[in-house]
Design a protein around this nucleic acid. Sequence first.
RNA 1: GGGCGGUUAGCUCAGUUGGUAGAGCGUCUCGUUGACGUCGAGAAGGUCAGAGGUUCGAAUCCUCUACCGCCCACCA
Length: 893
Amino acid sequence: MIEIEKAYEAKKYEDKIYEKWESSGAFKPKIDKKKKPFVISMPPPNATGVLHLGHAVMLALEDIMIRYNRMKGIPSLWIPGTDHASIATQNKVEQLLAQKKITKYDLGREEFLKEVDKFVKNSQSTIRNQIRKMGSSCDWTRERYTLDEGLTAAVQTVFVKMFKDDLIYRGSRIVNWCPRCESTLADDEVDYKESGEKLYWIKYGPFTVATTRPETKLGDTAVAVNPADKRYKKMIGQVFPIKSALGEYNIVVIGDKSVDMEFGSGAVKVTPAHSFADFEMAQRNKEVFKKVGIEPMKEVIDEKGRMKNNCGKYSGMTTKECRRALVEDLEKLGLIEKIEDYTHNLSICYRCGYTIEPLISKQWFINVDKPVIKDGAKKKSIKEKSIEVIKKGEIKIIPEKFNKTYFNWMTNLHDWCISRQIWFGHKIPVWYKMDENSKKEYEKNPEKSRHLLGDKEAICSIEKPDDKNHYVQDPDTLDTWFSSGLWTFSTLGWPNKTEDFEYFHPTSVLETGYDILFFWVARMIIMTEYTLGEVPFKTVYLHGLIRDKNGKKMSKSAGNGIDPLEMIAKYGTDPVRLSLVIGGTPGNDMCLFEEKIAGYRNFVNKIWNASRFALMNVSEEDLKKKFTAVMAKSTADKWILTELNALVKATNVDMEKYNFSEAGTRIYDFIWNNYCDWFLEMSKGEHKNPIVLLHVLKTALKLLHPFIPFVTEKLWELMGEKTMLIAEAWPLEDKNTVFKKEAKDLEEVKEMISKIRSLRSELKVEPAKKINAIIYAGKQVKLLEEKREIIERMARLENLQIEEKGKKIEGAKLITHGTMEIYLPLKDMIDMEKEAKRMKEEMIKKQNIITSIESKLSNKGFVKNAPKELIGKEKERLAKEKTELAKMAENMV
RNA sequence: GGGCGGUUAGCUCAGUUGGUAGAGCGUCUCGUUGACGUCGAGAAGGUCAGAGGUUCGAAUCCUCUACCGCCCACCA
């Protein structure tokens, strides 16, 4: 008899257990070249703040995978880390400084970066603690940071390699520009927001054009029409003077298929320097511009979103101010035909929400179409290769539906702009030669002297050029996704040929939310295939977003967010983990609400109490005994062991298929229904077998450990185990513990008890009231005699008479159960009339079932095509239903 | 505009080679039975969005429709 506390108190144990795991070295895999390792690179949380539910679900799922594989004896490595998240972090620090009325320019680059580092160190330690709170069994000795020394070396090495391969180039192109961040953004870093705008119809030489951005009129160099448009066809190639508030200017008419004849007037004003579509049109019509001597690129908006000094009286105005002023002036000139309300999608910065200003800028790009990766005799572009690895199945995405999304994105990928005008990040390893004067000028104000950074004598190298006095490093930093794209191998020590890298790469699974499939997953594939010529991981597991009870996105502003840490404090980590895993399927969003967590807290407590009961019924001696199949004594023992074995088998299949929700649900069900409600209840009588009681429970604890590591570990300890559960071997099938006949017999007994209980309840017999029963058991007399005590206790019977067969008992209620007849003499206790009616209804139901099975079995097609097993089952069932109905009919008379 | 999902019990969702519709929560009726009221026993509740097709048999496969959602593109 061992007694433990009445309820599980997570808070009391969790931190201590985590420390014990960590200090035992269990998180650190042993390199064993004979075994294939299991590796997950943890998606590094941004170094900006705190853990949210997205991280929590990520940590829960990855920990399940890692613990499961570790218990299977596979060297399992889970590398944690953080991402410097250049723009996000810089913005955050800028905001904090703004509260003190300080700008980054007040501090200067160096001082500002010191501030950022301070901030990052602080949030990193917060994040570390939170990852620990979730019970994540990651290897902290290998923790990395995208901006640490080693990773910086990896970033520089890859950049130089790409530069040498001519894959990276610097060029003036139209880019997404955030005037607030004063930086470029990649195409997929642009968000769209529906916004109510005006559509201005402007008289435009011989045309009328419609635009939402009249201020860009100052940068117009053409009007585009569809070459098939009869109205304008003849004008293509001609030059027209256009009246404006700043006097006249010339435009050329170009023909381009992308112009929609139906929209507006069918003629579009073209501002190549400030619109992606216009830029492309100008590219396609280069020759036309050349012929008439018009320079297509007329830049009128600067990096701060203000009108350039070539804009006369509008110079210095913001685009918004300019729009207002210009429209007013055009109205005075009678050039505005009409103004309509119009809704369209505004491009905004995904980090700060500010309106994007497309403009021409000199930036670094990665050419995604250049054939550069050797593949046999051919060379393939990084784009082609990245598509191929998914097509060939070298990388498997779960769920598969994302393959299509991935292909679509990858196919339409344009050259990737990788330079950012952000201070915080990896500096670009390119050096520009300058004479002394230029250098002085540049250093005085780098922001305004970018034009001095000439390409001609630029050097790309990690080291500063020898002649360092004449070189200035590129002031830009790299897109944060450039470094996170290298994450799976840079964290393993690459570019050094470390043992870790050789052994652990490629990694096994990349688990993350589907929302960063493009941002990160796709870029990892690109970068890794290019750099190493291998995949970064073999499986991509994508989880869904966590939403609130009404399916709404959780957000601070909506106030519907759930803080995982608060929930952990209230209910413990284990329930939070379960609530994030069970009920979720890969790639699908999942709702989370507090009641759900509370429900799993109940489950955790249930396991605790089942263990409490088991421990109360075993001796210290029992704890030391080792279970073997021969220790199974009773039918109940054999039944639960058979069920347990089926559970182990099914769980293994689910775990291998990444069906964690189903695996979790199944174990939950086993513990609660099979183990607690039946086996434990049965064990309260004569048939007690402490060894089986313990063995089944301990096996279930092992299966549950990846899901709810804390409570299972604690119970493991309480069961007298000296080694930790985290390092225990994963349960495997044991055919010696399968007892088909006994399992089936016990199911019969269970079913019988249920039927008696059900009838009692329907007839409103008080639960406490003991009643008599006579069972004609046929061949099952022996079984029922063995289980007599259990049946009596669980069905609340006073006097149980078991016979092989006998006569109908007048005035007693009959329950038919296959060939068995159970009579309950309840005459005095029930309303016989009502009961007769109920009985009739039941018989009709039975008759319907019989009819439906009969028609199925007389269907030639069914008999011919259905599997034999199924036909056998149906026949068996028909016989059973028929027997039962006959008995009922007999009893009615 | 292009693509992808979803629609199953009052609510949140499972349902993996097509073979008698499931869970949790909620509801109702009982219950102080040797662990657990963070509990137990029992019950009610579903023409699986709609229409057609394939099949002996469809929630499951195909086609169409409706509604909801997401992603990509971005038309001035």
